[in-house]
Nucleic acid binder design. Sequence first.
DNA 1: CGCGAGCTTGACGTTGTTCAACTAGAGTGG
DNA 2: CCACTCTAGTTGAACAACGTCAAGCTCGCG
Lengths: 230, 230
Amino acid sequence: MAKPQLTTQCIDCFCESIAFQSLSKSEIDLLNAHRVELKFNKGEVICKQGSFATHLLFVQKGLTKSYLEEDSRTQILCINPPGCFLEIPSMSVDNVFHYTVAALEDVEVCFFDLSAIKKVAQENAKFAWFLMKIGHEAQILTFDRFFSLTQKQLHGRMADILLCLSNRIYGSYEFVLAFSRKDLADLTAMSNESAIRILKDFKDDGIIETDGKGIKIVNLEMLKKVSRFG
Amino acid sequence: MAKPQLTTQCIDCFCESIAFQSLSKSEIDLLNAHRVELKFNKGEVICKQGSFATHLLFVQKGLTKSYLEEDSRTQILCINPPGCFLEIPSMSVDNVFHYTVAALEDVEVCFFDLSAIKKVAQENAKFAWFLMKIGHEAQILTFDRFFSLTQKQLHGRMADILLCLSNRIYGSYEFVLAFSRKDLADLTAMSNESAIRILKDFKDDGIIETDGKGIKIVNLEMLKKVSRFG
DNA sequence: CGCGAGCTTGACGTTGTTCAACTAGAGTGG
DNA sequence: CCACTCTAGTTGAACAACGTCAAGCTCGCG
């Protein structure tokens, strides 16, 4: 694993971020003084569900996945684009990580000491509000997934995920997956084989084109229809 | 529907609540001046998913259910004991309710004007932190349900819900459900008939005793085992 | 006494998983 | 440069899990 290093100052990295618009110089200095920057290789676990949460994560670069795990079963909660905060809910409650985060590609993460975050947040209400807001946004996303996974059949679930990846992560109707079919299956709460079969169905129906890890949505309307009624 | 009325002052109702420990007299007055108290009858919808969120809800009395709905499909997120805040995630993001809340029994709800809440929270960091914390607690509960519903089979899901009701809601191994089998089915993402069959299985296996809406857990260890491996 | 809503049960069909076999491509060592 | 191996991806067939449908039941209520 990479050695701790601080290549940048918070004030360089985040000065444009909404997060830090509300922070004073001294508050930024405090956060900056209590953080660690690390690089992770593709596949590595960044923080583990159940372990003691001493830091809040900010992913500067690279895709990550957050997932729940228990008894060798895993459920991916979310694919996270770079520029996101992770493990927010651990912050205020019990200082235990409630999901595992792993790197889908090479990733750069900034770990902020929770005591420092907490100190600033309990003095600066605007910053607390900001943290709350990004936590809520994540939670609202979770609601959609909750509904999709519990109420829809395989085709509908897969359609939802493809739409979500297209919108939130890749910002295009054509993209190359950074992860395996198994991950796609863990995202949609189905078996490996089912995920493959559904993709094939979509391909046969002219909804998508696939080429290895490449996926192109060619019939968006149809995909949305499947998402709704599948 | 009951007429708006203010039977109590916030300072009476909440003076013992953690929420308001961090509030000044003037802040309490502000919240108090911008709130409405309403009573709802069993079965009534308190706030509707998709509608404009102008208030934060505090349930003073009575059980409620929060659920997601779309195209006549419903998924219950949570059964809420009295003394809880609801629709927290709507507060900071887009002012739209993201789930529906309905009364499972006669209920008393206090609606706090969001502008007032926001004003206080953006000035009083301790209060913002408190709101964040209760939001996070709800989110962590959701993770457990997320995993349960997506990764376990019917028996495991039902066991989880029975344990949850016993722990969080009724605080006893013996309780009388405030809702129907259909609700139990919507909680566990299964069909009405399956819910009934699973309960019967549990009864046949000596894990629970049932009498109409009454449920008694007689073999807790077994139920936990089913929760884990079901 | 009859009505209706919620509850219960069995039979049946569908959906989705599991298992096993096979394929393609990427890395490795001779 | 060619076997060899390992992993991810793919396919089909058998099976289990679960939902749907239809019918009957119970109990509270007018």
